[in-house]
Amino acid sequence: MANQLKAEFEFYKKNQSKLVDEYLGRFVVIKNEEIIGVYNSEIDAYQNSQKEHKLGSFLIQHVTEGKDDYSQTFYSRVSL
């Protein structure tokens, strides 16, 4: 499951620029490296996608410019 999500995540990062042009500010749902849904909120994406797809089989990503929306920085405490 983690590997599949990693593939979807890499797909988003690779295509971020194109997706920003088309879906800036919206939440895309990615499965098998394809966009299967576009929503205005994360909870809408979550609730609607899980009706037809198993949780864990798709990735929800907020489409924004830059890396802030898919990066976290921990200056202390966290181990990888």
């Binding site: 979807e8 929800i60 976290q72």
Partner: peptide
Amino acid sequence: VPTGQTDVHTASG
């Protein structure tokens, strides 16, 4: 169940 991924930056990488 995970719904996404993020790049985590820490002192160890």
